[in-house]
Nucleic acid binder design. Structure first.
Ligand SMILES: [Zn+2]
Ligand SMILES: [Zn+2]
Ligand SMILES: [Zn+2]
Ligand SMILES: [Zn+2]
Lengths: 142, 142
DNA sequence: ATTGACCTATGTCTAAGACATAGGTGTAGC
DNA sequence: GCTACACCTATGTCTTAGACATAGGTCAAT
């Protein structure tokens, strides 16, 4: 199979499969005539694993580590448990950041509904953004 | 003022200020002797604006656009309203994606609590990841 | 003048692909 | 066989918003 077929079969783009191949997460045979990659059943199996792991928040580097361990006949499970715990924490942080951001955006939009447009003068760029309560005072405005 | 002072005053890193300077979002004078940048009061004011806009989810490119309009003596307000609406939609999408990801991760961790570690064989890398219900069936496993 | 702590500008790197492009494939028509 | 032409491929470059590394500059104390 060539890249597009394998990509479609797993619901990812051909570019994604090419990327995984580039970083040697997949190692298909290369046709020496045109450099086209030929993906075997085993390659598809591995890609399936990568897609599943990605969907659980593992980075491609995490996945490389995991696969390396497995190929070394060691159980990757402890590593997997450790990593996902860390990734979940990161996700939680991002989540909180995103909630805060969304709240600020919504508040700004709400506040600006009753604010007229204004042409900037020398000491202001957009009064809406500048007046939005964030408290970014420079504390040295004399 | 030099980069560090201005950065501290606004609660960002010196690298951030340098980055904004590099992309000409800030345009401090340069000491021709040592290339050190000298930030004026006006530069600090502009940085204050950039920081405020960033905290509302505007990209640096958005901010460039907004500033350009203001410097052209046009009101940037309609642009600002348009952009933040779009950015809020994106944030909302990210938010939903993140909720789904977090749910998958938590579910996986919960499921794996009762799963023993296992050493991989030729047809498996990590059974925990592989067996986690995501339904990534290749549909051609004959 | 010399040290040494701190600071600076510049270049490079990051994640995970998307995008652009030059060239290859394969089928249809002649 | 040859030519179109639609589609596919590998490769190189680009993306975000800074972080990091490093060679060199500053400045106060010696
Ligand atoms: Zn199989
Ligand atoms: Zn405005
Ligand atoms: Zn001012
Ligand atoms: Zn496992």
């Amino acid at each position: 199979m060539r890249v597009k077929e394998v990509a479609e079969r797993l619901g990812v783009t051909a570019d994604t499969v090419r990327f995984y191949t580039r970083i040697r997460l997949l190692n298909p045979n290369t046709n020496p005539h045109n450099q086209y990659k030929e993906y075997s059943h085993a390659d598809v199996e591995r890609l399936k694993f990568v897609v599943a792991a990605r969907s659980l928040g593992f980075t491609v580097e995490d996945i490389s580590t995991i696969i390396a361990k497995a190929e070394d006949h060691q159980s990757p499970c402890p590593t997997v448990r450790q990593i996902i715990e860390k990734r979940l924490e990161e996700t939680e942080r991002q989540f909180q950041d995103l909630i805060a951001l969304r709240a600020r955006m919504s508040a700004a939009i709400a506040q600006w509904e009753d604010t007229p447009d204004r042409v900037p003068n020398g000491h202001m760029i957009c009064h809406m953004i500048e007046s939005f309560a964030g408290g970014f005072s420079d504390d040295t405005e004399k």
